[in-house]
């Protein structure tokens, strides 16, 4: 059970509770995002869209098993609906495609690398999937290609910075509190600490 590739209950509940926190934040973010889109248009909304890919990347970075990104984002979408999201249908479809995007990026790296570039790639793939989905769902094909192009660029930047770098920052900060010691990320941190201690003793 310890090193199995499938998720155990402990990991599922932890993913869910991380996603619950994000689910509530997403709810606030939807209002914020819609306000921004209403006033500044979809390009500005693109810049904050990476936030939606944070839940799967944080979960994947912490637990480091195949499928965590997709499952994490689906659970985040599910909890968002439980909490009472006003865009339940869109959330469910977006959750699936975004999770799939992030998962694909990690799968391409054979689930070996969880360094910053890998996470940024996952964020970029995630926001790209988000873009393709809303392109069809909200009929963005009716806009000029200049604005959809700008929007895509804004979203990809947001995916790399907010989703990639932001998630890593958040997860590392969580790890320093010690609550993740039983998970893959916490174990790596502990090994590093032990190695550093040995080095300092030898010198």
């Amino acid at each position: 059970m310890k090193n199995s590739k499938s998720l155990n209950l402990r990991e599922i509940v932890v993913i869910s509770s991380i996603s619950i926190v994000f689910g509530v934040l997403y709810l606030l973010w939807i209002f914020f995002g819609q306000l921004i889109e209403g006033i500044f248009g979809p390009v500005a909304r693109g810049l904050i869209s990476g936030f939606w890919i944070m839940a799967p990347i944080v979960c994947a970075y912490i637990i480091r098993k195949p499928g965590v990104a997709l499952v994490g984002e689906l659970i985040a979408a599910g909890t968002e609906i439980l909490v009472g999201s006003v865009s339940a249908g869109a959330v469910l479809i977006l959750g699936f495609t975004q999770g799939l995007g992030a998962e694909l990026a990690l799968a391409l790296l054979l689930y070996r690398s969880y360094k910053l570039p890998a996470l940024m790639l996952a964020g970029v793939f995630g926001t790209f999937a988000n873009f393709v989905t809303i392109y069809f769902m909200y009929g963005y094909s009716q806009y000029s290609s200049v604005i959809t192009g700008l929007m895509l660029i804004a979203m990809l930047i947001s995916g790399a910075v907010l989703a990639g770098w932001g998630s890593k920052k958040l997860a590392d900060a969580l790890c320093r509190t010690g609550v993740l010691d039983n998970f893959a990320l916490g174990k790596i941190y502990r090994e590093q600490r032990v190695n550093e201690d040995e080095l300092s003793q030898h010198s």
Binding site: L9, I12, V13, I15, S16, S17, S19, I20, I75, G78, T79, L82, V83
Partner: peptide, 8 residues
């Protein structure tokens, strides 16, 4: 698992 987390 999700229901348990929802209770939080």
């Amino acid at each position: 698992g999700m229901m348990a987390a929802y209770r939080f």
